[in-house]
Simulated scan of single mutants.
Amino acid sequence: MEPEGVRHRMVEVAKGVRLHVAEVGPENGPVVLLVHGFPDLWYGWRHQMVALAARGFRAVAPDMRGYGDSDVPPSAGSYSIFHLVGDLVALIADLAQPQVFVVGHDWGALVAWQLCLLRPDLVRALVNLSVAYHPRSSEGSPLQVVRALCGEDHYMCRFQSCK
C-alpha cells in the first residue's frame, strides 16, 4: 500500500532517458535522496520517506534507469557508473537544491559513493546501508574481484551473459 501524500513525476535526466521519481514532504524542505539497490524500486523506501517527511525533509526516491517506471536504455553501455551518477546529478539539478543528503542501499550504495567522489559539491552528507566501501582495486575489474572473493555462485557472477 502506497503511503499518503507521495507525489510521482518523470524527470528527464539525459537525452531520451527519464526517471520515475516518488517524493513526499515539503517542497522547500532539505532533500534526502534515496538510492535503491538491486532488485528494488522507490517503493522499498516508502516507510523511510514518510518518517523523513514527518521531520520536515523532502524525501526523493527515483527508480534508477532500467528499473520500474523509469526508461530502459537498450544498450548495456548505457548503464556505466558515469551514466548512473549523471542521472543523479541531473535529478539534483531538477530539484533546484545546491546540496542534498544521500542515502544508498545495496547496489545504490555503490552509485552513491561514486556521486560523492565525482561530485562532492552536490552532497551534504552520505549514509550507506548493507555494503562496505571498497575503493578501486588493482586486482582487476570489479567482477574479477568478486569472483576471486566469492566464487562463481555469487549473484553478480550468475547474472553475467553466457558466451
Results as ranks from 00 to 15, higher is better:
Val111Ala: 12
Leu117Ser: 09
Leu117Tyr: 10
Leu126Glu: 13
Asn28Val: 08
Glu2Gln: 14
Ala90Phe: 04
Ser161Val: 15
Leu118Ser: 10
Val21Arg: 04
Ala132Val: 12
Gln97Ile: 07
Leu118Ile: 09
Asp69Ser: 09
Val89Gly: 04
Phe57Thr: 00
Asp121Pro: 02
Val123Gln: 05
Ser80Gln: 13
Val31Ile: 03
Leu110Val: 15
Cys150Ser: 11
His8Glu: 13
Leu143Ala: 13
Val131Tyr: 01
Val123Cys: 09
Tyr155Lys: 03
Leu117Asn: 11
His8Ala: 14
Val85Ile: 10
Ser130Ile: 09
Asp71Asn: 01
Glu2Trp: 13
Tyr43Ala: 14
Tyr155Ile: 15
Val127Lys: 06
Leu126Asn: 10
Leu149Glu: 13
Gln97Arg: 15
Ser161Pro: 07
Val131Pro: 05
Leu33Asn: 03
Glu27Tyr: 01
Glu23Cys: 04
Met1Gln: 11
Leu84Gln: 14
Cys162Thr: 15
Leu91Phe: 03
Pro120Phe: 07
Gln97Asp: 02
Gly25Thr: 00
Leu117Phe: 12
Arg18Gln: 13
Gly66Ala: 07
Gly37Ala: 06
Ser141Asp: 12
Trp107Phe: 14
Gln144Cys: 06
Ala14Ile: 05
Lys15Met: 05
Arg18Thr: 08
Arg9Phe: 08
His20Asp: 12
Gly151His: 07
His134Lys: 11
Gly16Cys: 07
Ala51Phe: 06
Val6Cys: 10
Asp69His: 08
His36Leu: 07
Ile81Gln: 09
Ser80Lys: 05
Leu122Gly: 06
Leu91Arg: 01
Gly66Gln: 10
Arg119Val: 09
Asp71Ile: 06
Cys150Lys: 14
Ala59Val: 02
Arg55Glu: 10
Ala132Asp: 10
Arg136Phe: 13
Val17Asp: 06
His36Ile: 07
Gly29Ile: 00
Val6Glu: 02
Asp121Ile: 12
Pro73Trp: 00
Gly29Ala: 01
Gly151Lys: 06
Val111Trp: 01
Ala93Pro: 01
Leu129Arg: 01
His47Gly: 02
Cys157His: 04
Ser75Trp: 03
Ala51Asn: 09
His105Gly: 07
Pro30Ser: 05
Phe57Gly: 00
Cys150Phe: 11
Gly77His: 06
Ala112Tyr: 00
Val32Arg: 01
Val72Ala: 08
Val21Met: 07
Pro74Gln: 09
Ala132Glu: 12
Met156Tyr: 12
Val21Ser: 05
Arg18Cys: 05
Leu34Met: 11
Leu95Gly: 04
Ala59Trp: 00
Pro3Thr: 07
Gly25Ile: 00
Gln99Lys: 15
Met1Val: 13
Glu27Ile: 06
Val111Gly: 03
Val123Gly: 09
Asp106Thr: 08
Asp71Pro: 05
Ser80Arg: 15
Asp40Lys: 07
Asp69Asn: 09
Arg147Glu: 14
Val6Thr: 10
His154Phe: 11
Ala76Cys: 06
His20Ala: 11
Gly44Gln: 05
Gly44Ser: 08
Cys150Gly: 03
